[in-house]
Simulated scan of single mutants.
Amino acid sequence: MTQNKDLKPITLYSHAAGPNPWKVAMILAELNVPYKPEFLNFQDLKKEPYETICINGRVPAIQDPNTDVTLWESGAIVEYLIETYDKEGKLTYDTVPERFQVKQWLFFQATGQGPYFGQAIWFGKYHHEKLPSAQQRYMDQVLRVYDVLNRALEGKEYLVGDKCTYADISFIAWDHRIQVVFKDDFGIEELEKKYPNYARWHKVVAARKAVKEVLEDNDRAVAANQN
């Protein structure tokens, strides 16, 4: 995808498997904003020099040499990129209520999808002891999020209005990761049976050229990190 040659690349601090940096990468790619990923290991996040960039010790964070802005928290970064680089409104609206409805769905993704999907993956695959009650709680929350999206998309192609916005795209990285980790339970074929509106929407958004290329980069990074 052709990038804006007038811009200096934004540094995106990332991790191969963590979905939130890839959410930001999708927005950068959609807006043709050049960026360079800096992949960090989890053990390097909560110490210097990275803590000077992100005091919370999490990814993503960005450093934008075009504006001298350093920023962390994926939702804040997405809003910054939209306000700074989407002057034509490719991924948003300037009308009311649509402009605020897009923000609404971004906040739901950041507070309702990401944390629950992350905990489902953690307790399902990585926690040092098996805790069935925790596993069930977070799996139930994953299904609740799918149900919310499925109902919201009834009779609609996208979450807000008649075009794909940053809200739609923001869900895809976590959707993709949980489908990879729990492919037998949350593979797209299984989800089509119970959540057809969601499954159709996911396929459409994930097939966008920029999104698809970032997902492919994500899969390659995960594979390389495992070798």
Rank of each mutant, 00 (worst) to 15 (best):
4 N>K: 15
5 K>M: 11
6 D>A: 13
12 L>S: 05
13 Y>I: 09
13 Y>E: 01
17 A>H: 11
20 N>F: 13
21 P>V: 13
23 K>Y: 07
24 V>E: 11
25 A>Q: 06
25 A>H: 03
27 I>S: 07
27 I>A: 06
29 A>H: 02
31 L>E: 02
32 N>R: 14
33 V>L: 14
36 K>E: 15
46 K>M: 05
46 K>W: 02
50 Y>A: 07
53 I>G: 10
54 C>D: 14
56 N>I: 01
57 G>Y: 11
57 G>N: 05
64 D>A: 04
72 W>L: 09
76 A>F: 12
76 A>E: 05
79 E>N: 15
82 I>P: 11
90 K>H: 02
94 D>T: 15
100 F>E: 07
102 V>L: 06
108 F>G: 05
110 A>K: 05
114 G>I: 13
118 G>F: 01
122 W>M: 05
123 F>N: 04
129 E>Y: 03
132 P>N: 09
132 P>Q: 07
133 S>R: 01
142 V>Q: 03
144 R>N: 15
147 D>E: 15
155 G>H: 01
160 V>A: 11
160 V>D: 11
162 D>L: 09
166 Y>F: 14
169 I>E: 06
170 S>G: 14
178 I>P: 00
179 Q>G: 06
182 F>P: 03
185 D>P: 00
187 G>W: 03
189 E>I: 02
191 L>A: 01
192 E>V: 06
196 P>I: 00
199 A>T: 00
202 H>V: 08
203 K>M: 04
206 A>G: 09
207 A>T: 05
211 V>E: 02
213 E>I: 10
214 V>C: 04
219 D>P: 06
222 V>N: 10
223 A>C: 07
227 N>D: 11
